[in-house]
């Protein structure tokens, strides 16, 4: 497994040209990406939580915690957790909104949704949670419906990110908040080098040993590099129509939380 070089990495801005889009560092037909991403998550769903804890040394819990702290969600609110996966954010949101509120855990992947639903039901959640299989690009919800929409570690897997952000804007109520938690670009060069080394050597090995699948974790590392950096994503949110857009770098920019308000 070799470390990434600039010549290997395609231009992130060159995504979706000529009917092609990126799937990690590969270019694939746009209509294929969704199925390929689905295969990745079908493959890793059962070991998803364990791998998250191992890969991040548990820090992903603090990234998600900060997202909740920034959400401004209150009792009685209606929250949409897109790409909710195994339900980490949904659980916290459900505690806060209480029985008067509602949390929708949406994921495009049936395997992830099943793992998330089983996990939440086993923990005694469910009264104020709905589980919906949905594509972030065309959310099956009415306009102006949610007080808060979150997508944690999901946007980079979406084929058309602009369309997904526009869809999130549509379902938010005016004054509602979008939270995008996603891997981003480290702000310190030394961290960036160490992070690349870790991503392209340790992650696939861990994936092979724990989840029996190194390719999915190779894709994870590649897809992170292809994801828009902090400023680009912020500009995408502003272009979609969000106001007061800003981002918080976490762990030296390895992860960033973007927030925006629907005007």
């Amino acid at each position: 497994m070799s470390q990434i070089t600039d010549s290997q990495k395609p231009e992130a801005s060159a995504h979706q040209t000529g009917g092609q889009t990126h799937f990690g560092y590969k270019n694939v037909p746009i209509q294929e990406k969704e199925a390929r991403v689905a295969d990745v998550f079908h493959s890793v769903a059962s070991k998803y939580d364990l791998m998250n804890d191992l890969m991040s040394a548990g820090i992903h819990r603090l990234w998600k915690r900060f997202t909740i702290e920034t959400s401004g969600v209150r009792k009685g609110h209606r929250v949409l957790d897109i790409a909710g996966g195994t339900g980490d954010l949904t659980m916290k949101f459900a505690d806060i909104v209480g029985d008067d509120g509602e949390v929708v855990l949406a994921d495009i992947n049936a395997s992830m949704l099943k793992v998330g639903r089983d996990r939440l039901l086993d923990k005694g959640y469910g009264r104020n949670i709905e589980f919906v299989q949905a594509n972030a690009e065309c959310l099956p919800f009415p306009d102006n419906h949610f007080d808060c929409v979150s997508i944690a570690f999901g946007l980079r897997n979406v084929t058309n990110k602009d369309r997904a952000i526009e869809s999130m804007l549509r379902v938010l109520k005016p004054g509602g908040r979008l939270l995008i938690l996603e891997f981003s670009k480290p702000v310190l060069p030394i961290i960036s080098k160490a992070y690349d080394l870790y991503s392209f050597t340790a992650l696939p090995v861990m994936g092979k040993l724990i989840a029996g699948d190194s390719e999915s974790y190779q894709y994870l590392a590649e897809s992170i590099r292809m994801h828009p950096d902090q400023e680009t994503l912020k500009a995408m949110m502003e272009t979609a129509g969000f106001a007061r857009c800003k981002f918080y770098n976490m762990t030296a920019g390895v992860v960033a939380l973007h927030t925006g308000i629907k005007p």
Partner: peptide
Amino acid sequence: RLQFGNQRIFIHHQTDES
């Protein structure tokens, strides 16, 4: 910020502007 819910207290750093 103290936020009460589900018989718990959630302790937040004040990043939420509301």
